[in-house]
């Protein structure tokens, strides 16, 4: 593979990876706080894509579509948390996991009923020009994805590091019970975390819908699983880790395909996952788990 191809593939990989990263953020934040693998998250992403599509079809531009999708998904995610996870918070660890699988099945079937199983095309909302930068070609849509993803991730980092709510989130993820004893409204913090994750996923959904030009009810399954892997590779619970993991997975996948291993592509992603876990059990940027005696 020559340099030009390599660079071109890197651009493709980074674009793909940044959409993974947007979804992965939701997984990682929720896991960081209540140690739940939220299986319905991939489906929130799918809902985001559908809402964005509906708004675009009403004639709005892409920015409004992203905004409305974010609002809608925020409401959905907070409702899901309230109905399906909160009653289970003090029970065994696997209970909310099963509950989230139930929610996921529900959402997928609901959307299949409402919208049909066929992928729906996304109208062309931005004129797609291809720019040549040095050796590589990059399209308007790719630039939009990269910029939106970067802005959202920086925004998220600011929220977590600079605001009071962010401080409360960090405290809660450190120790939920202590945080609640210190006067933090843990329920509000958890709802807020779900809301933040959903906002990121919704943006990811609309962007992916626009980039790949298709939206369908099962789109959240594989994307969700990959994003979850990205979160684990980066170190689950760590926000920069999710971003790094997403990009890492995206690039690795694209390079794997480019190397002619297309049919083993999923195996590459999961093989990497296992390797990372074996050598750094807590992920690239995760804090090592301490075994308390």
């Amino acid at each position: 593979m020559d340099l030009q191809t390599l660079l071109q593939q890197m651009i493709n990989g980074i674009t793909l990876g940044s959409t993974y990263a947007l979804i992965a953020l939701g997984y990682t934040m929720v896991y960081g706080i209540i140690k739940l693998i939220n299986f319905a998250h991939g489906d929130v992403y799918m809902l985001g894509a559908f809402v964005g599509l509906a708004v675009v079809l009403m004639g709005a531009n892409i920015w409004l579509a992203i905004f409305v999708a974010m609002l809608a998904c925020l409401c959905v995610a907070v409702t899901i948390e309230r109905v399906a996870y909160r009653p289970l918070r003090s029970s065994i660890r696997l209970a909310p996991l099963i509950s989230s699988i139930g929610v996921s099945i529900f959402l997928q079937t609901l959307m299949t009923l409402l919208k049909g199983p066929q992928p729906v095309g996304f109208p062309q909302v931005v004129t797609n020009t291809i720019y040549t930068v040095g050796l590589v070609k990059i399209s308007t849509v790719q630039i939009i994805i990269l910029v939106v993803a970067a802005v959202l991730m920086i925004g998220l980092q600011l929220v977590i590091k600079r605001t009071k709510m962010g401080k409360a989130m960090r405290a809660t993820s450190e120790d939920l019970r202590t945080a609640s004893l210190m006067g933090i409204n843990v329920n509000a913090v958890i709802s807020f975390t779900f809301a933040l994750g959903a906002v990121m996923a919704a943006a990811g959904g609309v962007l992916v819908g626009m980039y790949f030009n298709s939206v369908f009810p099962l789109m959240g399954v594989m994307a969700g699983l990959k994003a979850f892997c990205a979160a684990v590779v980066g170190g689950i619970g760590s926000v920069p880790g999710a971003v790094l993991g997403g990009l890492f997975l995206g690039v690795a996948e694209v390079l794997g395909v480019a190397a002619g291993l297309g049919s083993y592509r999923d195996a590459i992603a999961f093989g990497l996952l296992i390797l990372v876990l074996l050598f750094r059990p807590s992920g690239l940027l995760g804090q090592p788990e301490q075994r308390k005696v």
Binding site: T5, Y211, L218, V257, G260
Partner: peptide, 20 residues
Amino acid sequence: EQSIQDGDQNFSAQVTALSK
């Protein structure tokens, strides 16, 4: 020869390889 999978949405890698 390139391989893809059903459910894929991103084909940039395969197409970049073809373009050579």
